[in-house]
Amino acid sequence: MSDENKDLASQDTAAERRAAQPGRPAVEAKRVHKAFGDLHVLKGIDMKVMPGTVTVILGPSGSGKSTFLRLINQLETLTGGEIDVNGEMIGYKRLADGTLQTLNDKEVAAQRAKLGMVFQKFNLFPHMTALENVMEAPVHVKRMPKAQARELAAKELTRVGLGDRLDYYPSQLSGGQQQRVAIARALAMKPEIMLFDEPTSALDPELVGEVLGVMRQLADEGMTMIVVTHEIGFAKEVADQVVFMDGGVVVESGGPGIIDDPKEPRFKDFLQHVL
């Protein structure tokens, strides 16, 4: 309960901070296409995500939401178009003669370091404790000394409310706790942008709240977030931008107000089914 009060208190300052962010988008998708073999999944997605804002992507199953997030994090390769993160094209660099050169592993890893990702199935490392999960990347990717990484990991875990679960293995934690460890693990790399792919879909209903609570707190702190979710309440409350995708295209987008006042029949239809 005290947590909630804290959230409310910090909310207007975060909102102000967001409103004050002008200029360059944190993520910009330009006519993005993706095909798996003959299956044309994304058919020209345009999207701008400003720094410090929360974008919620809604859409029916199979509309390509996960695919879009995975493209931003280079877990899939683009078929057409371009994605920029902080103004820098991802996955390729443009050579002097205008042709594209695929980036090597190291360059891709460097670009990924700016992005944190949280998966529907948590994907925690089961052979490591919560603390070790969170320490892993700082120690082995950033070469941070172990003692310092341990301190950082404990701090991140405390931040998501798991300060007393440091030495638990994922299999000893509830789904909601596991997902919060996964969020802490991503945060420990100090990403500028967080991507969430249906972070609460694999959870029992009573555990959804604790994960959304952590995400809300992150949004209030001014983290740039792209969230794929079916939690309409969360979208209304936290989103600065709502994007509705269907059939591989953006059907409707705008402020959170569009949820209460949808224009497109397909969006109306979708909302009726979800609510």
Binding site: D105, A110, M117, N123, F125, H127, E136, A137
Partner: peptide
């Protein structure tokens, strides 16, 4: 999903094999 999570954390292929996949 294990390799994907590791990739998303910026780990390189050989490290993912050594630290994440092989131990499991």
């Amino acid at each position: 999903g294990q390799a994907e999570a590791a990739q998303a954390l910026g780990m390189k292929r050989s490290m993912i094999m050594r630290r994440v996949i092989l131990p499991q």
